[in-house]
Amino acid sequence: MAVLLLAEVTDGALALDATAKAVNAAKTLGDVTVLCAGASAAAAGESAAKIDGVSKVLVAEDPALGHRLAEATAALIVSLAGDYSHIVAPATTDAKNVMPRVAALLDVMVLSDVTGVVDADTFERPIYAGNAIQTVKSKDAKKVITFRTSTFDAAGEGGSAAVEAVSAPGDPGLSEWVEDKVAASDRPELTSAKIVVSGGRGVGSEEDFKIIEALADKLGAAVGASRAAVDSGFAPNDWQVGQTGKVVAPELYVAVGISGAIQHLAGMKDSKIIVAINKDEEAPIFQVADFGLVADLFQAVPELTEKL
């Protein structure tokens, strides 16, 4: 059995953490070949070759593959699919865009957000915002899977796989990229950070979100937010944690002014230690918190930042 793994490549660079976690999740399924696709992807291919457990790297460079537009990327994967029993990727927004398209072109079902590998046909995945875990067995000849990265450790480095160039089937001409709006940040990335500090509606304004950011910076943490905070314009969309945002499982998750709706819990309840700061002692977030502090966040958070 052999696995084709679509690496997460952004603007020519490999997202090592997400890719290495998917490699680790996939390696029990067979020899792992990593595919790096993009307008430029050679450098990403070099990095992927060093991940432990990778047996081969394919690099596909073509302007049509830039910005990971789904149509061209899916066509490329389908052109390579013949040799593989499993086609997998980390469950990033890019892969969630591409992989179901690949599956339908191969006339197979997709398995999204897989959190456990039972055997080559059988997998675990959360449903209902993580309120149930389903074990499913696929009857399809090929399995198309995205792995939820927060539940797998990253494979180490030290490999030296061979790198080979492959050609792309060309531009289907269905879509074109216009622009990206990406906020540059020196903070760790939300999905791989060891500590995450998140703010909710209770924070009250974009201005006051600075006290959340100050605590995060003191801890060397990433900043997260509830949907209510993002909807209200306090925080950008890529900070959203939850069922429809990012799923995180850091060593420490600090939830400030967040009530603890199931859709939010879906994105953070596997964190090792959860701290909640909320002025309402009845807030459901306290039911999952290891340490709860019933307090006004405008007092408690600056005090915490100072005393740490």
């Binding site: 079902m109 309120n131 389903q134 039911q287 340490f291 709860g292 502090l293 915490l304 005393k307």
Partner: peptide, 28 residues
């Protein structure tokens, strides 16, 4: 007809509520 057979559905392990701390110093 489904391609995926549901082997089983289970509840995730529940998280135990921890403790309420008195103040910021205790939390630290």
């Amino acid at each position: 007809s489904p391609r995926l057979e549901i082997v089983k559905t289970t509840e995730p392990a529940a998280r135990q509520a921890g403790e309420i701390v008195a103040d910021v110093d205790t939390l630290v």
